[in-house]
Design a protein around this nucleic acid. Structure first.
Lengths: 215, 215
DNA sequence: CTGGAATGTGTACGGCGTCCACACCAACGT
DNA sequence: ACGTTGGTGTGGACGCCGTACACATTCCAG
């Protein structure tokens, strides 16, 4: 048969690919990165892996399952971006101040990721919501933490340092998440998509402040 | 007008349809209503209009253009839902109180629509953002007002009644919109999709309060 | 060594968006 | 009255997509 059909990478010596599942996942992630969820096309992923379309079905029972895997990976990458932002927070002696800074870093990381990786961000939050698999997440990113858990931790810290009264803790994740996610949307798909970085940064700070004050 | 077009067999007496553009748009809206943007399939719309697939190209230059028209209609319907909610606000003597009520009604209308018409809501806010055409909007819904303008009015009222200081008016639309839109997302596609009506109503009130306090 | 179990291939089907050539029909100017 | 013209709908075809079924190749356990 045809020894090859593309050229650049997908020449494969062995009949078996080695780790096709991973290759397809990574191709899918790349597709999602520039193009969003719509761009995650099963046949294109197999093409990039240098393999026949149906080979994908040995590893994903359907296109939707591949998309879910990509989605889980995107969520994992988002969590990593948030962790990175948290790690960059200057350590402060004052615990309360520190907790506040971490809380803000969580929001900033979320928004930065939405802005810099809008394709992956949109993929992460498109489609339905089967709770992300920690097993899959562990394969791609390494952290077992998802964005929701990171936010919950930051809020717990706010409570334990006395910044946020315990009585307002319940459900606070949803208030904070709502505001930040909504802003992310406005920025990447909504009417703020043409805004300058400066404006965006300013608005981000205001939203975060609004959340702190109104939580 | 048209002798028929609705009956089970979409048999058409005349060769010309009469108002195919409108029929396609309405079919598209129906498709979006249950199924979201993904479900707006050109061929299916033509089927429902009882017409050959290519007939659509006399009225929409591409599938995307049909989708945009449906999207504009969905936005218009959202605006109507918000207006309805505003109209239901009890008139109060105290202007400040009234302004606050209207502001909340804007948020409630938005969230109610997201909940009750999630397909249309998702359609309204999927895809890119070419400013909605007032001409198209006028054809479907009657109001020339879009959700953004309704929100802006409510905020203006808050300022003129002294509830919101003028200094915080600029950009306030985006803060409010972020929070409410984010909550809408969490409810219809996110981790709150399984929540009860009671929980949702409670969270909605908290978000609105958060916005008022933190604006 | 051998015979399944994994894994990848080939072929085919129906659905989609879209292009092109053609058929139909209404309205208008002569 | 009529013929032309241009807007409107039809028919067929193309290339993409996701997916099903049968088959080929390879790996590994007994």
């Amino acid at each position: 048969m045809n020894p090859q059909k593309k050229s650049s990478p997908p020449v494969r010596k062995t009949f078996h690919h080695g780790n096709l599942r991973k290759a397809l996942l990574e191709a899918g992630i790349e597709l999602a990165r520039d193009g969003g969820p719509q761009a995650v096309v099963l046949r294109e992923a197999t093409r990039r892996a240098g393999v026949a379309p149906n080979a994908a079905y040995r590893h994903f029972s359907s296109h939707g399952e591949l998309l879910q895997a990509v989605r889980a990976a995107a969520i994992s990458l988002l969590a990593r971006a948030m962790e990175t932002e948290i790690a960059a927070v200057p350590r402060s002696k004052r615990l309360a101040e520190s907790a506040r800074q971490v809380f803000r870093a969580v929001g900033r990381g979320y928004l930065k990721f939405a802005l810099n990786e809008s394709g992956l961000f949109r993929t992460a939050f498109s489609v339905a919501d089967p709770v992300e698999d920690d097993a899959d997440a562990a394969k791609t990113g390494r952290s077992g933490l998802n964005p929701f858990q990171l936010l919950a931790r930051a809020l717990d810290r706010l409570v334990s340092t006395g910044v946020l009264p315990q009585s307002r803790r319940a459900g606070a994740e949803y208030l904070a998440w709502s505001a930040v996610h909504g802003l992310a949307y406005l920025i990447i798909e909504g009417p703020l998509s043409g805004a300058s970085d400066k404006e965006i940064r300013a608005l981000s700070e205001r939203v975060l402040k609004m959340v702190e004050n109104g939580l």
